[in-house]
Structures are given as C-alpha cells and as structure tokens.
Simulated scan of single mutants.
Amino acid sequence: ISKPYNFDELLVTINRALEHKELLVKTTLLSEQVNKKLGTKIIGESIELERVINLANKSAMSDSNILIEGETGTGKELFAEYIHKHSSRSENPFIVINCASLPDSLIESELFGHEKGAFTDAKSIKQGLVEIAHEGTLFLDEIGELSLTLQPKLLRFLENGEYRRIGGVTNLTSNVRVIGATNRNLLEEADNKKFRRDLLFRLNVITLTIPPLRERKGDILLLARHFLEKKSPIRSPKRLSPEAESVLLKYNFLGNVRELEHIIERAIIFAENDFIRPDDLNLPTNIIQKVNPTYLTENESSESVLSMEEMERRHIEHSLIRNEWDRTKTAGQLGISSKTLYTKIKKYEIKR
C-alpha cells in the first residue's frame, strides 16, 4: 500500500487480504480433515478379494484414472482410499464427493468452486474440490449419477486438468488423480445415451470390479469378527455363537459388507449375553430355520409341512423359553399385547 492512499482502494485491498487469509485457513482445515481417515486395511482372505487387492496395488503405482465398479456396500470408497494411501500422492489430500447427493448447480460449485458474486449467495470466493485436491486424489462416488450437463465439464478437466470457477473468466489448472465409482453398468448407460462414452473411456483407463460379499463367503466371518471387535463395548465384548456363524454363512447379503456391519451392530445391541445367537441377528426366519431348525422335533425332518397354528404355537413357545417366560417382554418382541399372548398360551396349552 503506497501513501497517500485512497480510502476506497484501501478497503478493497483489506477485503482481498481477509478473503485470501480465509481461503488459506479453509484449505488447511479441509486438508487436515480429509487426511484424518480411518485405517484403509481391507479385511478378507478370499481368492476373489486377493485378486482385486493385487490389481489395486498395481494401479496405485500408476497415475492413471480409475473406475471402480461394484454393488452398493462392497467397499468402493475403501478401495479408492487404499489406492490413494499406496500411491505417490499419499501425503496429499484424498477428497470425496458423492455425485448423487447434490443437484447440478451445487455439484459444479463443489467441484470447480465459484467467484464472488457468481450467484446470489456467492458472497466470497470458494475453492472447488479439484483445487483443494491438488497433487492428491479426487474420488467421485456414484459418478453414474452425474448429469449430462456436467459431464462435458468433467471430461475437459480429465483431458487437460483445466477448469473454470463458476462466474470466472480465467482457466485454472490442478494436478489431480481421479477415481470414479459406480454401481451401474456404464457401458449400458452409454449405449442408452445416459453417460458420455468419451468420458467413460477417459475414466476407465483402469477398471476394478469389487466382488459382492455373497461371492466371497470365506470373508464373511472375518468381517463379522472385525465388526464385533470394533463395535463391542470394551468391558463386555460379544462373540458369535456357532449357530449365528452358520446363519451368516447362509445369508446372501444383498447390501454386502455395509449390511453385514449393520447386522452386527444391531446384534450387539440386542444380545442379552456375551454370545450372539441367531435370533439376535434379526434375519429372515427361513434363513435361521435352514441352519437351526429349532421349531422341529427330533422325529420331524426339515421337509415336514406344519400348519400355521402349529408354527405359531412353536414360535410363541420358543420366544417364551428364550425370554425365560417373561410374558411382557415376549409380547413386546412378538408385537402383540400381553392379553393376546396370554390367550394364545391358553389356546395352545403351552406350559413351562
């Protein structure tokens, strides 16, 4: 600032300095936040998983863009983070954005930033995630949900690293490795004109396909024990009973690893002792009966056809025994009133 100074020019200079300081502070805070990630250890010993981990290790050595395919809950973000941590960019930010969670206008602003006054609420300059992720990795989750309007802008960035903030006139550059993830078949989406083919080919230089949990049964119990250790109270750790383990191995896990994690977390809450039993898992009854047909007597086979009344009688009896004949608790679990439970006990002549 040179003297004598113009008061209006001084205000502009001070405001710019404050905005610059705010940007630096935000950048520092964001960088610290994104680098404070949970461990990226991938749990599993199956051949199917080992094959993908091997490909992920090789991919980490390159700087090419990656597309990770897999069903919901298979751990696509975990693999993206694993690749980042094992790459030459590991000391720099790992930035995540879910393309399905925001409307177009907000996603563009989040990705590329905006200038002050670019729109009504743009009261200051905002850095985009591509700028914050400079020298690091940008993970675009559910990239198949990105609109056709935004796809050309992302394509341009992938081609030469150039982008422009909303409301800006200057082309900026950022050195970022992009990893996309999807649970869709993007080739089919491209055939149906819902995803740009040129963007797909820019993105899937390397493609990793994460197998669903039902195709790697050998990892189910390893993961279950990992979640038990992670989520159980320190003073009262929980363990799976052999029957519960058998039930988990029979289940298909349409929600994959995420569903297994939620099942274990729920079971820890509802288990009444140190061992988690099949009923604590809260899985479909037919799955439990296939493994542990507690409703059948020794003289009946699993193919026996029972009447609805007999099934109800056995279910009520089993619940009463499990709850040590606490009728109020049993009625609550069965979703009926204590009076209705008493009537059914009398009807079916259930005795202790």
Rank of each mutant, 00 (worst) to 15 (best):
residue 125 I to N: 13
residue 213 L to I: 04
residue 30 L to K: 11
residue 164 R to N: 06
residue 280 D to I: 05
residue 255 G to Q: 05
residue 310 E to W: 01
residue 149 T to E: 08
residue 33 Q to L: 11
residue 233 P to H: 04
residue 31 S to M: 10
residue 227 F to G: 03
residue 314 R to T: 06
residue 308 M to C: 03
residue 107 I to Y: 01
residue 296 L to N: 01
residue 68 I to Q: 08
residue 301 S to G: 12
residue 146 L to D: 07
residue 135 E to A: 12
residue 349 E to H: 10
residue 107 I to A: 00
residue 207 T to H: 13
residue 191 D to P: 02
residue 9 E to Q: 15
residue 75 G to A: 03
residue 110 E to Q: 09
residue 344 K to F: 00
residue 191 D to N: 14
residue 285 T to H: 10
residue 308 M to Y: 12
residue 275 F to C: 03
residue 114 H to K: 05
residue 192 N to L: 14
residue 10 L to C: 08
residue 196 R to A: 06
residue 88 S to V: 15
residue 63 D to Q: 13
residue 37 K to C: 06
residue 129 L to D: 01
residue 220 I to T: 09
residue 169 V to T: 13
residue 210 I to R: 09
residue 45 E to T: 14
residue 301 S to V: 01
residue 197 R to M: 13
residue 218 G to Q: 08
residue 305 V to Y: 07
residue 194 K to V: 00
residue 44 G to I: 05
residue 101 S to K: 02
residue 148 L to D: 03
residue 218 G to R: 05
residue 206 I to E: 05
residue 255 G to K: 01
residue 244 A to W: 06
residue 228 L to E: 04
residue 12 V to A: 14
residue 321 I to D: 03
residue 77 E to L: 02
residue 26 K to R: 14
residue 264 I to M: 09
residue 208 L to T: 11
residue 24 L to K: 15
residue 264 I to L: 12
residue 266 R to L: 12
residue 15 N to G: 01
residue 115 E to K: 14
residue 312 E to K: 09
residue 320 L to S: 04
residue 85 K to H: 13
residue 29 L to G: 05
residue 40 T to V: 09
residue 232 S to L: 06
residue 135 E to H: 14
residue 133 A to P: 02
residue 9 E to V: 08
residue 287 I to M: 11
residue 4 P to F: 05
residue 196 R to Y: 08
residue 322 R to A: 15
residue 341 L to V: 03
residue 132 I to H: 02
residue 205 V to W: 05
residue 283 L to V: 07
residue 182 T to A: 04
residue 224 A to Y: 08
residue 20 H to I: 10
residue 118 A to D: 10
residue 56 A to T: 04
residue 262 H to I: 10
residue 10 L to P: 01
residue 94 F to C: 05
residue 337 S to C: 02
residue 335 G to S: 06
residue 267 A to E: 06
residue 173 T to S: 09
residue 168 G to R: 00
residue 343 T to K: 15
residue 87 S to N: 09
residue 326 D to G: 05
residue 98 N to L: 00
residue 277 R to N: 12
residue 44 G to M: 03
residue 161 G to F: 01
residue 55 L to D: 11
residue 91 E to I: 12
residue 247 V to E: 10
residue 252 N to C: 04
residue 283 L to A: 07
residue 208 L to N: 07
residue 104 D to R: 02
residue 209 T to R: 15
residue 219 D to Y: 05
residue 134 H to T: 02
residue 154 L to Y: 00
residue 157 F to C: 01
residue 79 F to H: 02
residue 204 N to S: 15
residue 55 L to S: 10
residue 81 E to K: 14
residue 11 L to S: 09
residue 323 N to C: 04
residue 210 I to P: 06
residue 130 V to Y: 05
residue 220 I to K: 09
residue 272 E to I: 03
residue 195 F to S: 13
residue 322 R to C: 03
residue 82 Y to M: 03
residue 37 K to P: 01
residue 180 G to M: 03
residue 352 R to M: 14
residue 132 I to S: 10
residue 133 A to C: 04
residue 45 E to D: 12
residue 192 N to Q: 14
residue 315 H to L: 08
residue 102 L to T: 06
residue 268 I to P: 08
residue 53 I to F: 07
residue 294 T to P: 02
residue 133 A to M: 07
residue 175 N to L: 01
residue 138 L to D: 08
residue 271 A to K: 00
residue 77 E to Q: 11
residue 324 E to W: 02
residue 145 E to S: 09
residue 352 R to C: 08
residue 246 S to P: 00
residue 193 K to L: 11
residue 291 V to T: 15
residue 292 N to L: 11
residue 61 M to Y: 09
residue 130 V to P: 10
residue 282 N to C: 10
residue 121 D to S: 15
